[in-house]
């Protein structure tokens, strides 16, 4: 359910960047830790509803889930934790420290290309003629 709040914050960030570059955002990529418990479908639905009628309408959202990380107490290596088999992927030790979950990050935004914008305005110009 917290996806609605995340979508609101994400939408705000995307619109701010859109205003900065003066371009329409068409895609965005976010990343989050597994413990952020983000449901892709719910987040996309919420963002779709919130962005209706704004510059971010129809934006395609890519979501990358980062696995939790552990620091092995035995071999001192950092590894991805597999929740179905919790042990160090290098030495097999179950003695490890759980590292902080990856934060929720807006990684990148793709804006409509200038060519496409030019084509659109050209088409409008032709229509007017």
């Amino acid at each position: 359910m917290h996806e609605t709040v995340l979508a609101q914050r994400l939408h705000k960030l995307i619109l701010a960047e859109s205003a900065k570059y003066g371009a329409k955002p068409v895609a965005a990529k976010i990343s989050c830790g597994l413990f952020a418990a983000v449901n892709d479908e719910l987040l996309r639905e919420a963002l779709c509803a919130i962005s209706r009628g704004t510059a971010a309408e129809n934006l395609k959202l890519k979501i990358e889930h980062k696995p939790p990380q552990g620091l092995c107490e035995k071999c001192k290596k950092q590894f991805n934790i597999d929740l179905s088999n919790i042990k160090c992927s290098f030495c097999g030790s179950a003695d490890f420290q759980l590292l902080p979950d990856a934060p929720l990050i807006l990684e990148e935004i793709e804006f409509e290309s200038e060519k496409k914008n030019e084509n659109k305005s050209r088409k409008k110009h032709i229509k007017r003629k």
Binding site: L13, E17, I30, P103, L104, I105, L106, E108, I109, E110
Partner: peptide, 13 residues
């Protein structure tokens, strides 16, 4: 045009 943003979505919180 693709730009890198790298901003925390929960920065307000």
């Amino acid at each position: 045009m693709k730009i890198k943003v790298v901003k925390n979505i929960l920065s307000e919180n």
